[in-house]
Design a protein around this nucleic acid. Structure first.
Lengths: 173, 173
DNA sequence: ATCGACTGCTTGACACTGTCAAGGCGAAGC
DNA sequence: GCTTCGCCTTGACAGTGTCAAGCAGTCGAT
């Protein structure tokens, strides 16, 4: 309803259409039907807008991980991959500290919350981080089409999920 | 010597200082001591300049992987991690297809060359891709300081290397 | 040797960006 | 009823990528 919400919604739309680099404050303002300087009143600068979106993204990720019925390592990994490949531009923005205000308390809290879910699967801290790095790398390489350089898969997302499963089976736990 | 080389060198310097988003064609031209439109003569657009740098980066990566004396999975992974953390901005650019001309033949060739090294360690294609995704994720999460969200390590790079070793030991091959 | 074309660079312009300053307008409080 | 304040607009500035036109050399052909 408020202008702030309109701006956020417009920015989300622009993000999905053009990626984080394609987000222009002025285009967002136009889309929201306000003047080009209106965003300044709700967000200190461009990074602040992006930070708000990223924080929202982490909240969504936390919710997605929370919905996993049986939070095994494999299940959480699959949910992580699905989230990343369903919202590629958002996922990209979330892990782009150079574009964000990393000291923002809301962003920090949202990040912490979603990362805490990853710890619930096992007590082995090394295994947690390795699994996280794996699924994170799978999302990025899949999104960028880089895995295609090694294999010719029809469905990249399915390949990523399959690889995560193979990892879960093969790792010594 | 040539202006093209000067521009590339200037762009590399700007990249290391400001990251890929901080590269401005005009700033690069100023640094190289030429007019603001000179880059246009050597690179069709900004993406073309970035593509040339990325291609060079993949060549460097291939060289780094080539220098590994005993190309085991663990050794290649370590070299990959070291490369990514030694040249964070360059590594970032290399895997940023939205900023590059992905159809550029030079880029394509350089990418293929460096990826081929990753295959030399094992015949197991799944294991190759899993390992790649792991080290890639480790580089990114370490570079962005995200691993700090799960653990409080003094030396992130050492943590990344340690995790890669643990992975190599624990995976069923 | 002179002319012509072509390459490599410059200058100038355009639309666009993020950000800042000043002002207006309406609602809320005294 | 008047004032004050919050939200928004308009206008401006420097900076950006890109394009068009022009200018200076150099190189080849006549």
């Amino acid at each position: 309803m408020g202008v702030r919400e309109d701006l956020l919604a417009a920015a989300r739309a622009e993000l999905d259409e053009n990626g984080h680099a394609g987000i222009s404050l002025r285009a967002v303002a136009r889309r929201a039907g306000v003047s080009h300087a209106a965003p300044k009143h709700h967000f200190a600068d461009r990074a602040a807008l992006l930070t708000a979106i990223a924080a929202d993204g982490f909240a969504s990720l936390a919710a997605a991980l929370d919905q996993v019925p049986d939070p095994t390592l494999a299940a959480l990994g699959r949910a992580y991959i699905d989230f990343g490949l369903t919202h590629p531009a958002l996922f990209d923005l979330m892990f782009r500290p150079s574009e964000l205000h990393t000291d923002d308390p809301e962003l920090h809290a949202a990040t912490e919350t979603s990362l805490r879910r990853l710890k619930t699967a096992t007590d082995d801290e090394s295994l947690t981080m390795i699994s996280w790095a794996l699924v994170h790398g799978l999302v990025i390489l899949t999104r960028d089409g880089a895995l295609g350089g090694l294999t010719e898969a029809a469905d990249p997302a399915a390949t990523a999920r399959r690889l995560a499963e193979i990892f879960a089976e093969r790792i010594q736990s």
